[in-house]
Nucleic acid binder design. Sequence first.
DNA 1: CGTGAGCTTGACTTGTTTCAACCAACGTGG
DNA 2: CCACGTTGGTTGAAACAAGTCAAGCTCACG
Lengths: 246, 246
Amino acid sequence: MANGRAAMQRQTDLATVPAPGCPAFAFNMCCALKPDARGLPADMQAQDVAVAARRTIWRAGETIDGVPIICQGWAATVITLSDGRRQILAFLLPGELVCASLVYNAVSPSSLEAVTDVHYRQFKRQAIRAAMERDPKLTLTLAKLWADENARGDRLILDLGQRSADERIASLIVNLADRLARRGPMPDGTMEFPLRLHHIADATGLTAVHAGRVLTEFRRAGLIELSDRALTLLKPDELRRIVGLL
Amino acid sequence: MANGRAAMQRQTDLATVPAPGCPAFAFNMCCALKPDARGLPADMQAQDVAVAARRTIWRAGETIDGVPIICQGWAATVITLSDGRRQILAFLLPGELVCASLVYNAVSPSSLEAVTDVHYRQFKRQAIRAAMERDPKLTLTLAKLWADENARGDRLILDLGQRSADERIASLIVNLADRLARRGPMPDGTMEFPLRLHHIADATGLTAVHAGRVLTEFRRAGLIELSDRALTLLKPDELRRIVGLL
DNA sequence: CGTGAGCTTGACTTGTTTCAACCAACGTGG
DNA sequence: CCACGTTGGTTGAAACAAGTCAAGCTCACG
């Protein structure tokens, strides 16, 4: 791993900063936990971890001693079948809670993999639970996050069960674009898009070959531009129409 | 509706009994709520409702003023696309909480439909929330139920994204059999199975025609017997092998 | 007795997979 | 510096799983 040392460095740097670049959603919890680390050393409350792209962070069924929130980079939750088939349950963007159920149960239902280089911060389960008991509003925040997680799952079920390849991929793109737009402006409709074909394939239940075909088809139709890990929505409305929204 | 009056009758009967035939899981909550209905009239705490088979109980996006638990019959949560395509997210068996997120948010993310005649009991959201604040263990119970809901969702994503028609239907059958077995013995491996082909189709992302073909194939292979809304697992291990478990 | 919901079967069509080859970019090690 | 394996992307031809359309049937219900 070329960036092993770089990652290490980043890790120690960040340990000194309360909430690094970590934007948006789960932010509520970062804020609520960090300020009142009364008496406890910082590393008792949360632990910073850096992982290189394409690494498996943990496997389904493993015990996770904390609740991770993504700070930088993209990750994915994955289920693997014994014969090697893989299904991506969700992509996790910076600022997102990895898995709400980890607040109550240490056993992870799915594997976690780094798509890009990832930096995440793992909060002590007890610290979060304690904070929620102190401030009931945090319980509502968690419930909201958990419900969002469900909503994304339900949408994926709909995509996989009812939609064609074109629709699934349009749905994925629109979904990611909306989530990214929510946490910062997207100049010229361009967003970072670090996914490989096999990520898209594993997330949409298609093969990488076919996912590639659909994308070139979208390119030729002038719907998107995609190169160098950057994706531009040229006709966002047309994409949304394919998905059936709008 | 032929059984309109019968349903009505059942409803009033049940109103007098604390927790009717309602078995298993969410039971914890029934018990915790009913005994200490201090001062409040019973119908302030929970409301009993009976619905005929094939009726839509509510639609996605509607506001539900309570948290329903199925007491009798089978129901299904459904998402409908504007062009008529339908996806069943989950089948709900007697004793199961309809949707955990309803404890915190009154807007239902999905429609609810009765598969058979259904009787459900709708608890006041505030009553449940109050009970949870009094007894933190109930919060853990809810978290467990919610995590189960997620696990079923994740499994469905895996089925729809990665598995063939045979595997999906085997998975559905095994899944239902396991859940039914958990709440009572299944003599001779026989269980009630009120699903129509279109239910199976909508749940597995197949067409009713193809779902039917797979089932007759299973019948011919001696894996199952299915008639008169009763399903017998003749070779449960073989079914599990198809799914990839065991 | 008619009507509508549900199941089965057959023939045909289509979307997606599979297999294979090939090319480009990149990091590694000699 | 070049040779090399790895990872990722593209394209084409053939195979296959599932969808579509249509017909005929049973059964329950009013």
